[in-house]
Structure formats: C-alpha cells, structure tokens
Design a protein around this nucleic acid. Sequence first.
DNA 1: TATTTTAATCGAAACGTTTTAATTTATTTT
DNA 2: AAAATAAATTAAAACGTTTCGATTAAAATA
Lengths: 344, 344
Amino acid sequence: MATTIKDIARKAGVSISTVSLVLNHKGYVADETREKILSIIKEMDYKPLHSARKLATQKTGNMGYILWEGHFSEVEMFYSQVFLGMEYAARKNDYYILLTTVNDHFDPRQDLPRFLKYNDVDGVALAGRVPLDLIHYLDKHAIPFVLVDYEVPGKNYNTIKIDNYNGAFRAVEFLIEQGRRHISFVGGTFIHPSIKERYRGYKDALEKHGLLNNSYLEAYSYCENVETSRAIGEKGIKKLLKSRPEIDGVFCCNDTTALGVLSGIQSMGKTIPEDVAVIGFDDIPPAEFSSPKLSTVSVPKLDIGKEAYKLLYEQIYNPNIMPQTRIISVDLVIRESSQTKNKP
Amino acid sequence: MATTIKDIARKAGVSISTVSLVLNHKGYVADETREKILSIIKEMDYKPLHSARKLATQKTGNMGYILWEGHFSEVEMFYSQVFLGMEYAARKNDYYILLTTVNDHFDPRQDLPRFLKYNDVDGVALAGRVPLDLIHYLDKHAIPFVLVDYEVPGKNYNTIKIDNYNGAFRAVEFLIEQGRRHISFVGGTFIHPSIKERYRGYKDALEKHGLLNNSYLEAYSYCENVETSRAIGEKGIKKLLKSRPEIDGVFCCNDTTALGVLSGIQSMGKTIPEDVAVIGFDDIPPAEFSSPKLSTVSVPKLDIGKEAYKLLYEQIYNPNIMPQTRIISVDLVIRESSQTKNKP
DNA sequence: TATTTTAATCGAAACGTTTTAATTTATTTT
DNA sequence: AAAATAAATTAAAACGTTTCGATTAAAATA
C-alpha cells in the first residue's frame, strides 16, 4: 500500500518517533537527521494518513460552514465567496471546510448538521442569519464558533463584521457631494443587523448634510419585511418614484436589491445616472455586468472568509481566549450608475 | 471524554467486537443482545469516532466535488445546487462532500486539490467543464470519479448527463406550436458539450417543422466564444434584432443568457411575450423572479447531485464495474415569457 | 448418541499516527 | 575528572475502531 511513517523510519535508520518529530516541528532533532528524513519523505512521496493523525491528536481537522439554505441556493452568491475565502485560508493548516445548509424550521434535536452530531468538526463558521437555536446549541456545548456578518443583540460572540455603517455613510455622502438632494433608501427586512446598520449610515449621512427633516425617512424609504431580492428593489423604487418623482438618488441595502432598482427606474422611463443615481452594497459579480454598471460599496468577501478562518482557528487552539469582534472595512467603487448629476 | 465503544461494551456486558458487529450490521448476534446494545447506545448517546473508524476501514468517508472557480463564484448557481443535491444524498451513508475549485491554469503537480494530494477522498465528482489534465490524473491514479454535465469526446467515463437535446427540441417545438416563425438562438461558447447539444436540438426542431433554410442559422443565431453571461445575452439579441426585426422567438442556451436577452429585448422597446417569446434552459432561481417570469427548460439540479452521489458510491465500492452514463430528463416549464402569440 | 453445522460471542491484532517518559549521547560547568 | 545540564533519540502506550480467527454453545444431521 501507500508508504507509511514506518517505511520512512526504516529507510532513514531512525525510529518513527524521530520522523514524527520532524513532521510536526517539535522537540530536538539534529539538523543532519532532519535533512535526511526530509529528503527521504520527498523521495518516497510520503503523506501522513490524516485519519491516523486525527485519531492520535483528537482533532478532526475539519471546520463546518453553515448557512441558511436560501442564501446558498437562491439569489445570494455573497456567502459562497466567503466560503471560498475560508477554503483558501484553510489550505495553510490542512483544514477542510465542510459546507452545509440549515433551513428556517430548525430543531436542534432533529436538524443538527451531521458534522455536529458526530463531532466531526473542531469548530464552525456561521454565515449570515442562522437560527438562534443553533447558536445556543454551539454555545451550550462549548463548540468554538464564529459569526460571519451577523450578530446576536446583547451577546458577545466571536464575530466578523462588515463595516456597514461607514460604507453606507460614505456612499450616501458621495451622492450628496455629486449634487443629489432627494436620496431614497430601498431595502428588505431589518432582521438582518447588517441592513439595519446600513440604514443607520444612510440616515446619519443625510442628517450631517442637513437633508433630514421630519417626514423625510417616511417619504423616501421603502423597506419590506422579507428577504431582499430583485423583485423587492423593482417594486420599491416604482412605488417611491410614483409618489416622489423628484427622487434623484437611491442607496440600496444591497446589490441584489439595487439590480431590481435599476430595472424599476428604467421601466418608468427615467435614465440612470442622469435622472437618478444608484448605489448598492456588497459588490456581487453581476454588479459589474448590469447596465449601467452598478456603483456599489465593495465588500472583500474572500478576506472575510480568511478572517473567519483565522479567528476560528485561534479559538480552537486557545479555547479560553475572550470572544472577539473583527471589523472588515469596505470600499466605495464608482462605476456608471452614480455619475455626477451636474458637471460644474 | 466522550463515550466510546468500550463504555458501551462494558455496560452491556459484552465484548467490543459484539458492539461493533451490531453497529455495522454484520455477522451473527442474538436479537436480545442487539436490542440491549442498541438501547444502551441510545441511552449513552454514543457516536462512533469517525477518525478511528476510518483508520480501521481504510476509507476516508469523504468525496470531493470539484468545479471551475468561475462556475462557483461568478454567475452560475447551477452547480451549487448540484452540490447541495450530493450533500443531501451523502447524508444517508455518512459521507462528507469536500468542495473545492480549480482554475484554468491547472497543473497536476501544483494545483491538485489537497484532498487528492493527501488521499483524503474515496472518489470525486467533477462538475461542469474542468481541466482535462485533472481528469487524466484521476484516470491514471485509478481514483473513482464521475463527470457531471460534461463529457470527454471519445472517452467512456462515468457520467451524469442532462437530456439537453430533447429539452431544447421540445422548447423550440413549443415556440413553433405557439405560432412563432422566426426563432433565434443566443448562446455562448460551444466548448461545453451541453450547449452544443442544445443548439442541435434547436436546429432539429426547426428542421422538423420546415423552418430551416440555407441561411437561417447564420442569420438567426448569435454565439460568442466566451462563457455565457447576461451581458452576452443582451448584446446578442440586440444585434440580432437590429438586422432581423421579424424575430418573434428566442431560444437561449441557458437562463443566465436568457435574462440578458430579456433586458435586451425590452431596451429595444419590444414587449415580451407579445412581440418576442423567450425560453431559457436550466431553471435557475432568478428565472422565477424576472419580469416577465422566464419560461425555461427545468433541470432537476438536486436530482443530478443525488445521482452523481449514487453513481460515485457504486464506483467506490465496486471498482471493477463498467463506466456508466445516466441521463437526467428535463421538463419544459411555461411561465410568462412565452405566452401564445395569436390566440385563435 | 456421536458428529457435524450453525449461531453467538470474544480475544487479539491491525490500522498509522502522536506523545510521554525514559534512555543515551554530547556538552558544559564545577 | 566528576557532576550537572542539554541535546538527540527511542520504546512503548495511547487514540477508538474493525475484522480475522478462535472458541463456545446450541441446533441439526447422521
């Protein structure tokens, strides 16, 4: 069969312990023997058998990545990218990321992902909004976990956050700088904290520039209490434009919505960006291919995945460390949908 | 620590061998003892440690799922759904599916997914178009694999195919039955066999109904030699409509393209389906939310994943079985984009 | 009844690592 | 030169299963 650590030891004329030591960069071993062993390993193309290693170390070498079914299979590609980022980062330590989904009706006794049921992961990353019961389960069973782009009010868990507030603030401020004066907000449910934060950034930017009066938000924002989608965006902006034709800028809670907003505006005979400027959030791939190309707040999805991995890894190997929150900063990227209104 | 097989054996007053036998449904064990052991297992919530089991059985309990980076992270959600289907099916046998991507510049010596490098999978599924060198590597190393929605000309590998030809044929025939007479095709690169087959179905349907003359295909099809995208669809149909304003139906190589076609037609001031009927292929989620809602050939993505899993599983446990091809049939689903042209 | 077959159970080896503690060898300190 | 310390190596135990072959008990056959 495949070559084992024994074969290496025999050929190198040492014990398997020594080979193991060089493999794991531990203990003392003479430079000379190390070199010899290393070269034999390469020569025989030896690869430690992971299941044996795992049995001995009592680690699984796996991390879980859980997300809501809808986010994976439906409209969002955001979290797939985050997954990829984790997967890339995990290569360094030979971790595998096991991806699975949970759905809305989650009962820990029944619907627990099997890598949790069978203790096949050392920790898990939770992407986006996931059932609270799942979080509680992990907490209770002391399984290391990190929340990605989500948070639980009043609880202090390990979290990777996007700088939603500043991203939104900056985007809206940009619209104002470009001469827009009637800027509306289109979004979905506020269950997701990210969206709430983006709304707050929107509001504060308006306020800073003295655009916010009593009835402003009521008149200029459209939020429906469902998951975001193109359809919501299209429907929302149409309704807004009908009652407020003076709208000349839209900040959307995310790109998916923004793409719908684009269609909505166009279907009402207005042009983008001349009549209405639009900025989204996330920078998902289709944003580059829309017409006009969508300006947006770009979120570094791969980096998020990478940070999630790193944080989770630290938690696994230092279980007593305090929970941390890391904030990933974002960039405003200007494409076509938000050009200057009035060139000076 | 966690309860082990020893704990179960001790409590049941039997040897660990016996416990193992009932766990694996092997050998003879008296009904009475089986019941007893089973109930103790449940009572103590015993879960066999996978790494130990894997070490003993010399199986990894993992399958790989490899797809081209672009397909995962960019516009396509098709293969994500297939993955989900595999993941669902894998639950039955406690297999884990390890997802990873490869990119265009693939060198087996460098870019081999690490689950292959470290022999951490019992077999792999290849989704869509993947580098030929990868396939050759698997073939050479006798690693069980199945191709999903792809094939290599002249080679007889395990394959899950979509019934592209008949799906396309049926879609186009439907357009004809509805009174359409100038039906064009919009697509991307023919590198992918599926697209080639869909084109063939398109052509044959036209021919069957006597619509195909010498210059037809040239005049009415638009194919660009790049990956399919919305942009291609939009660009393609605009160009076609300019030279052939009589076009009253479009069959698209897939939904992504079709969504672009929808925008393209609308941006030229025509209405769907009154002026032009559109049918796509794949039935990706956004097809349900476009306006008008996209008629399409629905491909059961979860089923594909499930079949891929089953075929791969069979290959792993019967390595000497002949390579098989399984064809997944498709359904024409009529939504709004293809209504009857002339009601009688 | 003695023998063979079948059913039920078990002891022990095997799977390929890591790790602890012991041992040997080399180096430094007194 | 002896004693103490540090460096290098190793034997053996441990990780938790499966499985092979042996053993015993019960049932079927002669």
